[in-house]
Design a binder for these strands. Sequence first.
DNA 1: TTACTACATTTGGTCAACCAATTAATTGGT
DNA 2: ACCAATTAATTGGTTGACCAAATGTAGTAA
Lengths: 233, 233
Amino acid sequence: MLENFSEIRVESPVDKIIRQIRELITSGQLSPGDKLPPERKLSEVFGVGRTNVRDAIKKLEFYGILKTMPQSGTVVAGLGITALEGLITDVLKLEKSDFASLVETRVILETQSAKLAAERRTPEDIIAIQSALEAYEKKVRNGESAVEEDLLFHLKIAEASKNSVLNSLMLIITPDIVNSFVELKVCTDARFIKASEEHRAILQHIVNQDGKAAGRAMLNHLKDVVEFSQSKQ
Amino acid sequence: MLENFSEIRVESPVDKIIRQIRELITSGQLSPGDKLPPERKLSEVFGVGRTNVRDAIKKLEFYGILKTMPQSGTVVAGLGITALEGLITDVLKLEKSDFASLVETRVILETQSAKLAAERRTPEDIIAIQSALEAYEKKVRNGESAVEEDLLFHLKIAEASKNSVLNSLMLIITPDIVNSFVELKVCTDARFIKASEEHRAILQHIVNQDGKAAGRAMLNHLKDVVEFSQSKQ
DNA sequence: TTACTACATTTGGTCAACCAATTAATTGGT
DNA sequence: ACCAATTAATTGGTTGACCAAATGTAGTAA
């Protein structure tokens, strides 16, 4: 009965403004490379407070679409118009990323990051990964949920890959992964224990600096999750 | 002479506040799951305006570290404390992405996205990729710079991969790629023409739905850029 | 005519006050 | 003693005003 009334008025003011800015760009009133109107003007045109405009700009700046220079103005990044259009629409729907895509992408990033980590790891990286692994196993032994510790182990590997961009992307998708895992109850006790062995195998390959084997081990480790996501779909 | 005085005072106030919040968490004054002090209190403690505090919170919320409920308070995500600590420190140094990592990550994402695109492309995808390719070749024939059109071609492929997350990540790193390319003058006329042939090859494999070949072709296409980035390093 | 300086305007950044909603407390009744 | 309702305080959200730097402009001197 009550469900009929939900789902109204969910769009936040900043998303509305992002949509409007997109309109400005796609309609050609705003070409890449040139300054966009001052914040005061925008707030006046859109009929909202300047804070909301600033928040929207900040969000777009975060994604690299806009660039704001203090006391000088905000400019549109030098991308093609069509690319921008796609970008902005995707920023809006980035939130609800489907689970299958998420897992698929994770597999891609992680196998490569394991491979690179094996090739480039320093002794310090080994220690960091090892301590993350032990924190994970400790939680598992106590019968507690160890989703975060699991991800932390993987993040440490990404860190050891010495690829800052790869590491950043992992950080970006990690929160979504955690949420999905908890939501869909991916993890069971049996899986935790099995994962523990697989973790050790990965670590061993990284210690041995065997990139290919590390990648394969990671692929194998994530196979379960992939199958789960496919069954959910 | 003057260079000695530059590069000071680069840390923005919001980063400073993020650092302080991290301090609060690591020192145990703030545990995962519980509310953090109201914004007014924080601004007073940190000795800055409330706006800066709100911006910092917003940034952390962006990464899923904090969650703010209107008129109720802001809470720390239910992550493990070690995970949080690692996440926040990484958020701070997220900005700087070196060119080598950028290219390396791009290769990873693009080879996979080409492979998936070949397997999943629809007739509409083919048309979109084809028209992007033609726009690129038109610019090249006129002797103009076609960096954006180049990237647009690649983005269309990512779109055809039907993996929303992969597509989003490509969109995220694309602006950085464009900037680096223009800055480092990666592209010459000869490369544009050679790239054109390689583009056609990739497209052909996607049309044929040959995933492996598409991946290989993309890898080959990006080889030049990889070598360039390594020589720069 | 040209170049340079001083000024006025515009810019994004910052701040303090205000608003509505939520939560805690107090009070009155049972 | 306990529960309900009303009130008081506290919360994040929003607004408008102010600040310092950057830019554009006009005026003056060479």
